[in-house]
Design a protein around this nucleic acid. Structure first.
Lengths: 322, 322
DNA sequence: TTGTAGGCGTTATCAT
DNA sequence: ATGATAACGCCTACAA
């Protein structure tokens, strides 16, 4: 494969000149032409590996998500990619599968490959970012915030979303709104259920919130099982707020299998139900500005990569219908 | 950040010895301990960039798909990841968005980063793999085959799937089965519709197949629009074979919006409909062994990376219900 | 078993 | 504007 020296030899210039041509600075017009021609003929592509070694940084950005099979995260990825690509970076997507070990290994890869930055959906608050800090690798978290480590973050107002979803269910006539939220490690799960709890206390002051709160895993089957538990209770709810899209799909399946379904049994979900333009499902959706979240995170990251020393910030995007 | 020399100094050995410790060969027990201790204390991680430059290959594998938002491909990715991860490689996922230019740029990145190999869902038969060939980068295509370039491939039997889906619709009483297939550039689209055409000719010998064939883009909206065109025709079909999952979702939406729906209007789809355990949709699904496809592709790729010089092969997996 | 030294392909510094 | 040269961190003959 052609190296910079091969091109230099062919063009009758030094390697330094070829390098400058590709860096785009301080080379005479004629030499530029000669070099470009030579490079073209030889099919020369700069070796990113060598460049990264020399520069101590590459032009790759990693996006690490907790569930590649959740459309929310792939849509987020599209948002990220739109802006990173426009800025000349390539985006690689990594799936931690909500496993801190896998998350850690991808973070290691990121610093070890000298990636320019990483956008991370953290598996939990305990995740270790020190390795990135050592290398001053730019980082921003999305969707979930991190309190154990100071870092830029882009999130939505989960409490407000949980509240408005719950309130709407009550206003539409529900008398007891349960909640299916995510894993305890996910701060979004805690915040969304906190929003629900506020409204539950207000509208069902005599009932015990904890009897109507289920934790699951943000996945279809978990949502379905949680819905089943709620329905099997002594005093079942007549509506439910589900804290993410996939669990809502599962909960809906469980309801339908029992002959229940919205709107007779109320349901609100945080985030769009995937592939559900199939006629009205009766589910009240709190839409998330998914691509915008990704695009915003990418923008923040790029600023850090460019060297911004602004104070850390947490960008809170509004849900589209609070 | 600690380098191999720092560790060597601290451990009182040469850099070569440290390198050998991490390569795992020919170092005395006591030195191994000392080196590992030193590395641990200093938080040393080998610099993959330097290693890749030296070895002319890295330990990263790229999976380039045409639509990251299609659950089929993310599920495929899980299958790939299962085996690459077990073999000690890290997988990065890239989205070409069915755009040959983006596909090309990711291929460039792959060779430029000296990735160990790439698993590719090609956007079309015209895609240029010469750059990979130059660097002898291992490659295998999945889902779609490539005839312009000799390369390993893992696919399913698209013709058989198209035939059996169509035949089943006729056997269930349909009198005219239309077909919504994918873009002309995708060989899967041509093969699936070819399967349909065979059965169409057999069961509807007097009708013109081309009047009942629609090309769309393998996406929800495209499927919906195609379904609308079919229904608006002079002699509309009473059943349809849809060549992929997302278009089936769109087609189903269109049917329902017109008060039609399976099973009165027959529908068969190639690949599982995403997030549809919501009660029977009435759609006859040709399930694809999605994860297995990914795992198989990864296995083939790993063999090539290990240096296998076996003849090129195309692995054809059976659909689960042919 | 261990160390020395050269080179992987770039880019930045320093001359010219 | 251009060229020679050193260095980025690692691995691997080759020597000892």
């Amino acid at each position: 494969m052609a190296t910079i020296h091969d091109v230099a030899a062919r063009a009758g210039v030094s390697a330094a000149t070829v390098s400058r041509v590709f860096a785009g600075s301080g080379v005479s017009q004629d030499k530029v032409r000669v070099v470009l021609a030579a490079a073209e003929e030889m099919g020369y592509t700069p070796n990113r590996t060598a460049r990264a070694l020399r520069l101590q940084t590459s032009t790759v950005i990693a996006l690490i998500v907790v569930d590649i099979e959740n459309p929310f995260f792939t849509s987020l990825a599209r948002g990220v990619e739109d802006v990173t690509r426009a800025a000349g970076y390539s985006l690689v997507l990594c799936n931690s599968d909500d496993d801190p070990v896998r998350e850690g290994s991808y973070l290691d890869v990121a610093v070890s490959e000298r990636m320019a930055g990483v956008i991370l959906v953290p598996t939990s608050d305990r995740c270790d970012l020190s390795r990135l800090a050592d290398r001053r690798t730019a980082i921003v978290t999305v969707d979930r915030a991190l309190h154990s480590h100071p870092v830029d973050a882009v999130v939505v107002d989960n409490v407000a979303g949980g509240r408005s979803a719950t309130a709407r269910l009550y206003e539409r006539g529900a008398s007891r709104v349960a909640c299916i939220t995510g894993p305890r490690d996910a701060d979004t799960a805690e915040l969304r259920s906190a929003g629900w709890r506020q409204e539950f206390r207000r509208f069902s002051p005599t009932a015990d919130p904890d009897a109507y709160l289920e934790h699951a895993d943000y996945r279809v089957d978990g949502g379905r099982a949680a819905m089943a538990r709620l329905l099997d209770a002594a005093e079942p709810p007549d509506a439910v707020f589900v804290a993410n899209n996939l669990m809502a799909v599962g909960a809906l399946a469980e309801l339908r299998s029992r002959g229940l379904a919205p709107p007779s049994f109320g349901m609100a979900a945080y985030g769009d139900l995937p592939y559900m333009p199939l006629g009205p499902s009766g589910v009240d959706v709190i839409p998330m500005p998914t691509r915008l979240i990704g695009a915003t995170a990418a923008t923040v990251l790029l600023e850090r990569i460019k060297g911004s020393a602004d104070p850390l910030r947490t960008v809170v995007l509004r849900n589209e219908s609070d």
